[in-house]
Nucleic acid binder design. Structure first.
Lengths: 159, 159
DNA sequence: CTCTTCGTTCAGAACTTATTGAACATTTGG
DNA sequence: CCAAATGTTCAATAAGTTCTGAACGAAGAG
């Protein structure tokens, strides 16, 4: 029971970190495992067995990872179904998505409307936040582009 | 029962958005209310009554908002205890804290160790993520500084 | 066309987390 | 000091979420 492989332990640790963001543990376990497994692609059966999860949990969790752009399906030659792997550009896709910030900026804009508009007294807290989120929303895509550009310059390897 | 003030409705909406980040609803309600209430400072009693929360929930929730740097206590002249208000620079404090990214970068570094180091085959997924988080960790504080600089130039008002 | 394998769905069980409310502590005015 | 008001803590409860497992569906091999 305490005999877990290093990969399995890593998956559990990843689950803890991801849970901190409000994501389901199974999601974090799957992602962690897929980050360190060998080979880098795994079938549902391998994931279920390796992580001690039910087929159902793997199915649900992997769909979540797929729709959020972190994993993708890859065909497996001598195998009935498919396998999953982490997308090499996963993090870029996630980071460049400014939707999260838009939700906040809109919340602040609605707040300003509630308190009686831009020029109502005592609205600094809302204006600062609104302006900050607008700034972030604008700048984050640029930041990601800069990373990509700099990273090309260095060495992009396999995958 | 469906007769909620605009402020109260806003608090509920804020709770929905913040819940999406994995935070407790009460936390989001308190923050939303404090963003639009008049006056901008509120006692525990006012918060409890205004939001329909117990004293306990207000106490726990406000401590969380305090420790995360979003709210602070302010003295109230003709009143026994204290009141709370949103810090005008709240969002800056939160954003400039690069701790969240460090947790991820460290997770990726541990992953590289698990798979056998930097140069092991099939580790691009981990290296890209590690480098990306390191980049973000480095650049986000700069970004926040730029915002502050530009914002000074414009007009900072009350608060 | 049938059989087998693999994947998905979903109702219910198991678990986790948030909230309450009452007891306890703290502060301040008298 | 005492009394009154306010704030905090925490065990129990309520609410919500995740996970499982069995039934169902799909797709390829023979």
């Amino acid at each position: 029971m305490t005999e877990l492989t290093a990969q399995r332990r890593y998956a559990e640790d990843a689950a803890v970190v991801l849970s901190g963001l409000g994501l389901p543990p199974a999601y974090g376990k799957l992602l962690g495992w897929l980050l360190v497994c060998d080979p880098p692609w795994q079938t549902s059966g391998q994931l279920a067995e390796g992580l001690g999860l039910s087929k159902g949990s793997v199915s649900t969790g992997m769909r979540l990872l797929e729709t959020s752009g972190l994993a993708r399906r890859v065909p497996v030659p001598g195998h009935r179904g498919h396998a999953y792997e982490v997308r090499p550009d996963a993090i870029i896709r996630i980071a460049a998505d400014a939707t999260k910030f838009r939700a906040f900026r809109e919340l602040m804009e609605r707040g300003l409307a509630v308190v009686g508009g831009e020029d109502a007294p005592g609205t600094e807290r809302l204006r600062v936040m609104r302006d900050f989120y607008a700034f972030i929303e604008r700048e984050v895509p640029k930041l990601v582009e800069r990373f990509e550009a700099e990273y090309q310059g260095k060495g992009e390897g396999d995958g």
